[in-house]
Each structure stands twice: as C-alpha cells, then as structure tokens.
C-alpha cells in the first residue's frame, strides 16, 4: 500500500486505524467544532475580500474574519492535540493559548495601522456619487 500510493495516502490510510486514535474525545469534538467554525469565518473573510467594492469594506471583512477565524482554529487544534493530561500536553496548550492571545492583540493593531496609513494616503471610501457615476458609465 505504501509503495503503491506514496506517503500521503499512507498517512490517510493509517488514520483510519482505530489503534492510532488517541486523545480525550469530548475535547476532540469541541476542537473539531471550533475548527469548522473558524473555517466558516475564514470563508466569510475570503468572500468579503474578493467581492467588496472598497478598500475600507475589504479591510473590515479581512480584519474581523481573519482574527476570529485564526483564534478559533488555533484553539481547536490546541484542544484536538490534547492527548493526555501530562505536563507536556499542558505546556503545549499553554503555548497555543499564548499564540492565540498574541494574535488577539496584534491583528487588530496591524489592521488599525494599515487603515490609518490608507486614510492619510487620501484613499477615499466608496460613496453614493461613485455608485451613480459607475451606473452612468454602465448605461452609456
């Protein structure tokens, strides 16, 4: 099997073994739910980043969705990888919580700095006038 499909499929096949399962299943289920919620938030951020018409609206989508989805996904992985309640796994959970706290502090800060830089660059938000102009140009 390993020689036929290569390492990637070997990893996939080995995950279906019941023996390789380890971890506390309540924490794993909570972690998987958090990860999927984070993916949904990141989907919103990606769609907003592509479809919104204006720099500030795009920044709104990216800043909020990015921060919350990163925190949710990292927390979910921290819970999923909590195998036993030994010292090492507690240390790992504390480290992941440190990353989450760091991102909780820094991601809005960098969004704010970038927004301030764009505002001082006279990057104008989209107004009703611009919408009317674009409609006129479409009608012509």
């Amino acid at each position: 099997m390993k020689s036929m499909y290569g390492d990637f499929f070997f990893v996939l096949a080995s995950t279906t073994d019941l023996e390789s399962e380890s971890g506390f299943w309540v924490l794993q289920i909570i972690g998987i739910l958090m990860g999927v919620t984070g993916l949904i938030f990141f989907l919103g951020a990606a769609v907003g980043l592509v479809r919104f018409p204006d720099f500030y609206t795009r920044m709104h989508a990216a800043g909020k969705g990015d921060t919350l989805s990163t925190m949710l996904m990292l927390g979910g992985f921290g819970l999923v990888t909590m195998e036993d309640f030994s010292l090492g796994s507690w240390l790992l959970l504390v480290k992941i919580i440190a990353v989450v706290l760091f991102i909780y502090l820094t991601s809005p800060t960098s969004s704010h700095a970038l927004m301030r830089a764009a505002f001082e660059d006279d990057e104008m938000p989209l107004t009703e006038k611009d919408l009317k102009k674009s409609k006129k140009s479409v009608n012509k």
């Binding site: 990893v11 996939l12 080995s14 995950t15 279906t16 390789s20 399962e21 380890s22 971890g23 794993q28 998987i32 990860g35 993916l39 990141f42 996904m73 992985f77 999923v80 990888t81």
Partner: peptide, 14 residues
C-alpha cells in the same frame, strides 16, 4: 482521527 482532521483543515485553508 486527528490526522484526518488536520489534513482536511489544511486542504480547506489552502
């Protein structure tokens, strides 16, 4: 289980 979850999450993120 953990590996499958990790592979799925990584692919979806990518």
């Amino acid at each position: 289980m953990t590996h499958l979850f990790a592979i799925t999450m990584g692919a979806a993120l990518f």
